[in-house]
Computed example of a mutant assay.
Amino acid sequence: MSLRIRRSEMTCPAHSLAMISKAAVSEADEVIIDLEDACAVSQKIAARATVIQALQTLDFGQKLVAVRPNAVQTHYHYRDVVEIVEAAGDKIDVLVIPKIETGDDVRFVDRLLSQIEANIGLAVGSIKLEVLIEGTRALQAVDHIANASPRLESLIFGLADYAGDLGARSADDQWGMFAYPKHKMLVAAKAAGLAAIDNVTFAFRDPEACQHDAERAAAMGFDGKWAIHPAQVPIINQAFLPTAAEIAEAQRLINAYAEADQDAGLGAIAIDDQMIDAASLRVHAKKLALAKRAGLIEN
C-alpha cells in the first residue's frame, strides 16, 4: 500500500481559482480540482485553463495535488487529460477518475497518460490514479478495477451517484443501507494494496455528522474521507489519526524488528506471540507516517 497520506481529500470546482486557492492553503492532505460534478457544463472547457493556471501558480505545500477530469465515457475526458497534463503534468500527483465501470476504463486512462508522459519528458507512471466506485457495474467489477493498473493508489466510494444508479429513494442511512457496497469496495482496495477513501458527508454545516461519519469510516478500516468544505477537513484529519497507544506500539514493533535485523540478520521475529515481518510492519509504518504528518511525533 502507498504510504501517501490521504486522511482528507478536499474537492474544489475547477472553474473557480478563488476556491482552488482556498483549498491550496487548507489543512487537507489532498486537494482535488474537479472538472466533473462541481463544474457546470457551460464551464467545463473554459475551466481547463483555470486548472492549468492554478497548477502553475499556486503553492499547495506538502499536499497531494489531484485533478478530476470528466468521465471516460464523455467527450470531455480525453481533452481534459491531454490539455492539462501536457501543460502542467509535472505539478500533478494524481488523476481522480469518476464513473469507472470496468478495468478497461482504468487501462485506457493508464495508456493515455503513458503516451502523454513520454511526450512531455515525464517518467512513465509518474502520475498516479484514484478511481471512484460509484455505480452498480463498478461494484460488480471492483476486484478487477482494483488490480487494473500499477498507477492505482486508492478506490473512493461515491455515495450519491451509487444511490442514484441503484434507484434508492434516499442516501441518508449510509451506514445501514449502503454498508454492503462500502465494505465490498473496502475489501477490494485492501486486497489489492490500495487505500480506501469514504464518501463525503453532504451536511457540510453539521460538524457532528461529519465527525460521526469520519470516526465510523476510520473504525471500519477506511484510510480517509472526502470533504467538500474547509470546515470538514480538521474534523476528518483528527478522526483518522492513530491514538497514542497505537503510535507507541508501532514504534516498539518497528524498533524491535530493526534491532533483530541489525543484530541477527532476522527477517521475521516473534513479539508477544505475533509474527512480525516486513509485510506486517507496513500497517505500523503507516501509523507513524500519519503521526509525523500531524506533528504528533518528531520526524
Rank of each mutant, 00 (worst) to 15 (best):
A148S: 09
L266P: 09
E101S: 13
D105G: 07
A270N: 15
K225H: 03
G176N: 13
A38M: 14
D261Q: 14
Y257N: 06
P69V: 05
R111Q: 14
M1F: 08
G164Y: 02
M10G: 00
S126H: 09
D223P: 04
A227W: 01
K225M: 07
F222T: 00
G267H: 08
W175F: 08
V131H: 04
A214D: 05
R252M: 09
V106M: 10
Q251N: 08
Q140C: 11
L159V: 03
Q274T: 11
I97E: 05
A47R: 10
N255K: 12
D93Y: 04
A219N: 13
G158T: 04
I271G: 03
L64K: 09
A148T: 07
K287D: 12
N237K: 05
Y78N: 15
A168D: 07
T74R: 12
I276R: 12
K128S: 15
V67R: 00
D59H: 12
E215I: 09
L296D: 11
M19D: 08
V85I: 05
P98F: 09
K63E: 07
C12L: 09
D206V: 00
L159F: 01
L166Y: 09
A218E: 05
D273E: 12
L17D: 06
I156L: 14
R137L: 15
D206R: 00
H144A: 13
E130K: 07
S42L: 10
R282G: 14
S126E: 11
Y76N: 06
L241V: 09
I133M: 11
S16W: 01
Q232H: 01
G265T: 00
I254K: 10
E83H: 08
L113Q: 02
L288T: 06
F204R: 02
K63F: 02
N119H: 11
N299F: 15
A46Q: 15
D161K: 06
A209N: 02
D37Y: 00
A217Y: 12
Q43D: 15
C210E: 02
N237F: 09
I133R: 06
L129K: 04
G121T: 11
G103C: 07
R107H: 03
T57Q: 13
D59E: 10
I276P: 06
A219W: 01
A138D: 05
A231Q: 03
A268H: 08
T102R: 10
I197F: 04
R151W: 11
V82R: 15
M220Q: 12
D165T: 10
M220V: 06
I254Y: 11
Q73E: 15
Q274E: 13
Q73M: 15
L113V: 04
F240S: 02
A217C: 02
A123C: 15
Y76A: 01
T11C: 08
F204M: 04
Q232Y: 00
I145A: 12
R252K: 08
D59P: 08
C39G: 04
A227R: 00
G295S: 04
S170A: 09
A163Y: 01
A179R: 10
I269A: 09
A219V: 03
A38V: 09
A191F: 13
A285R: 15
D80E: 00
A203M: 09
T243V: 08
C39S: 06
V67M: 00
